[in-house]
Write a protein that binds this DNA or RNA. Structure first.
Lengths: 238, 238
DNA sequence: CGCATGATGCGCACGACGTGCGCTAGGGTG
DNA sequence: CACCCTAGCGCACGTCGTGCGCATCATGCG
């Protein structure tokens, strides 16, 4: 078909060059995996489902990704890149900002909490490394000696992950149930009421939680604990 | 065979009465599940493997346990029962003791961390309820008003879970690899060295970790952060 | 222009998983 | 002796991660 050789319009009709628009790229796969994870949760991510979302077979993904575990690591670091690297000059303000952002990201991507919590020193994602380097700098500039800056950062990170993980778990449980948070709370209530009836303090806590605020995402609790952690760190600077 | 009717010796030859020695009990199943989890990790617990360890088929377990998820909840609460309920009269001492015990349990049962981190207010295991009630009491007795006692307990728990979870993940990764922690660190080292070469502070941290102490279970880091958290809480009591 | 090459994606297959269903056997109760 | 209730089992279904070998096609070289 020599007509195809006509230069200008046929370019757009031709199937796009594979080398320029490969459907399957590591970036594409990871981005779609993040989307799928956000929509359906970690336990609904399967290579088959992810492949079909990309118009590809399950095993085709293995050309670009070594395993499902590696895919999770890539997704984790991709999302981690959304964290800011602020420097306000006042260490408490800076750390507070990052901590809030980290909690926000966990709540927006509930599947992330579990992976993040298990990622220790063995996890070497570039975005996480950059973030950690930055935070170490913030603490050192605040006056912490290097080794203690490390401890301080670890403390804050542990707190944020530890408090945001149950929140994220609650949110994704609610999301996957198809019901509203209100409905879920009401359905859970009788069992909770029965379980805590012998424990006066717990009963009071559940009663308090019953009203207005949603039990899963409690900003007040988060802020309280965060400021206490920072208070505790500040005592070391005196 | 009327000889079987002879009373005394045949009792021991007869297959033990099922009603007195049921092989499959909820308690037995949960206990064996905990053992299997400790030995082989969470992702190697399958109903089939658990069943065969008990000399039973996989589906037989479903007579006593509604689902694998429920089994995990039972296992979690069973282990949670090992926590002490101390009362030393001095709140910091008491909380420190419980926090150390909680970290110890997580490190002894690494599979527990992930489950524990996802268990929020929706989790109603009796042992966890009792523990929480006790801790609320400790904080209230220390002078925290009820609502703040709740926040304080949540803060400490979040910190402990957040810091012990990566430790546990590291330990179980090492355990499942069949290699020693030393070997693992050495195998990981080149990749880590390459990854952090552009980040001076991280490089210093990894260098420090290289020597003596095992990177997975770092008691100093834990104790540092715990005391900072408690310092921060103490500022509220003045 | 033609052929070899290397990268890319796919189909098939394997073994393992959680768990619903209907059967069996053996004890307790009348 | 008749009945039933319960613990346990075998089978089966749909799903999973992933190794292997083949097809396809853009590209580089003669």
């Amino acid at each position: 078909m020599p007509a195809d050789e006509q230069p200008i319009p046929s370019v757009w009709a031709r199937p796009s060059r594979k080398r320029e628009q490969p459907l399957l790229t590591r970036e594409n796969i990871v981005a779609e995996a993040v989307r799928l994870l956000d929509e359906e949760g970690a336990e609904n991510l399967s290579m088959r489902r992810l492949g079909s979302r990309l118009g590809a077979g399950a095993t085709s993904l293995y050309r670009h990704v070594a395993s499902k575990d590696e895919l999770f690591e890539l997704a984790l670091d991709a999302v981690y890149g959304d964290l800011p690297l602020p420097d306000t000059g006042e260490w408490r303000t800076t750390v507070t900002e990052v901590a809030r952002a980290m909690r926000g990201i966990i709540l927006r991507h509930p599947w992330l909490a579990a992976r993040l919590a298990e990622a220790g020193l063995a996890y070497l994602g570039p975005n996480m490394l950059r973030q950690n380097e930055h935070m170490l700098g913030v603490f050192e500039q605040a006056g912490f000696p290097p080794e203690e800056a490390d401890h301080a950062m670890t403390t804050v990170t542990a707190y944020v992950i530890g408090i945001a993980t149950p929140e994220a778990a609650w949110l994704s449980m609610v999301a996957r149930s198809g019901q509203s948070e209100q409905e879920w709370t009401e359905r859970l209530w009788p069992a909770a009421e029965r379980a805590v009836q012998d424990y006066p303090r717990l009963r009071a806590r559940y009663e308090a939680q019953k009203g207005g605020n949603t039990s899963g995402t409690n900003v007040d609790t988060f802020e309280y604990g965060l400021q206490r952690v920072l208070d505790g760190l500040q005592t070391r600077l005196a």
